[in-house]
């Protein structure tokens, strides 16, 4: 493990997070926050957690930044009160912040050194590392834990996303649909057209090879949503809506949820329990091939449909209102 590099990255994570909180300009805060996300993804990749690194990079730098930007353009900002802050006197504020930063850095270093030893691998992880391939047929242990050992929790997580999409759509659903066909310039449109097939291929490879390599339904679905957001921005929302209407996005999302529950019930019908994998009607296959790991391929597809359609429809609902205000 490269400790000096990790120490350097920890320092900059704390610094950028600190800067993001204390900057007055919100747009600069967003940029600082996305830098924090990229650095954290690098740390996760260095600590050999590529699944988490992928999620962190996609969600924090792609999706969260775009959603924050949309929220920024929706809202009005009032200038900060210029008088002295009563909650915390100014001579105390910076030393307090420095102290908190220092304590957090110490905790991070302690975590790093406890990860470096063998002690961390005494619990359930030894069982997972030794027995995953035999019990599930998947090469990617993280995917096996998410979609086999803890598949019921994953169903709960996708339900949370479903609730979030439903809530945001309900809150922002007022008004008529004004669709823009304006988009960005010719160069950007052509460049985007050149890049889109590769982005979609990348998303599909993350999604469908989730049980073999780092990645999976959540990460692949997020990349699909990011592609949808890019198309929405570059070509205007009218283009996006004419290709994939919000109705069909809804259908895809609900279809993902139904597919997940259907696979679960299939396992239950076979007598292996809800979401049973190899005890149900599924085969382990040859390790390393596409059709291995039992139901994981289909569960990844279900989660990917749900996350991709859900996140892109959140962005679509949010940007719709923005255009109504902008083009009146």
């Amino acid at each position: 493990m490269s400790e000096p590099l990790l120490a350097f990255l920890y320092f900059f994570i704390l610094l950028t997070a600190f800067v993001a909180v204390f900057l007055d300009d919100l747009l600069s805060s967003f940029i600082s926050l996305s830098v924090t996300g990229v650095l954290m993804a690098t740390v996760f990749a260095l600590l050999r957690a590529p699944d988490v690194a992928l999620t962190q990079a996609i969600i924090n730098s792609g999706l969260i930044t775009s959603l924050l930007l949309v929220a920024y353009s929706h809202t009005r900002r009032t200038p900060l009160p210029s008088g002295p802050c009563t909650a915390c006197p100014s001579w105390l504020r910076w030393p307090l912040a420095a102290l908190i930063c220092f304590l957090l850095a110490v905790l991070l270093f302690r975590g790093m050194y406890s990860l470096a030893g063998e002690r961390a691998l005494e619990t359930a992880s030894t069982h997972f590392l030794a027995e995953t391939l035999r019990e599930t047929g998947a090469l990617n242990v993280v995917a096996a834990i998410l979609l086999d050992y803890r598949a019921f929790d994953t169903l709960g997580e996708t339900t949370v996303i479903f609730a979030a999409v439903a809530g945001i759509s309900l809150l922002l659903s007022g008004g008529k649909h004004v669709r823009s066909r304006q988009g960005l310039s010719f160069i950007v449109k052509r460049g985007m057209a050149l890049l889109t097939p590769f982005l979609l291929l990348y998303a599909a490879s993350i999604l469908f090879l989730g049980h073999l390599t780092p990645g999976g339904g959540f990460q692949g679905g997020s990349v699909f949503a990011t592609v949808a957001i890019l198309i929405c921005v570059v070509y205007g929302t009218g283009f996006d809506a004419s290709r994939v209407s919000s109705k069909s996005k809804e259908t895809l999302e609900v279809g993902g949820a139904l597919l997940f529950v259907f696979i679960g019930l299939l396992g239950a019908a076979w007598g292996g329990g809800f979401l049973a994998n190899l005890k149900g009607p599924f085969f382990p296959g040859t390790p390393g091939s596409l059709f291995s790991g039992g139901n994981m391929l289909f569960l990844n597809l279900a989660v990917g449909l749900k996350v991709g359609a859900g996140l892109s429809s959140i962005f679509y609902v949010m940007i719709k209102i923005l255009e109504q205000e902008g083009e009146q």
Partner: peptide
């Protein structure tokens, strides 16, 4: 190659 395509494109969009 990806960088060679995407970076000038993004800067062009910002400038415009």
């Amino acid at each position: 190659v990806f960088f060679l395509i995407s970076n000038p494109m993004a800067s062009h969009a910002i400038a415009r």
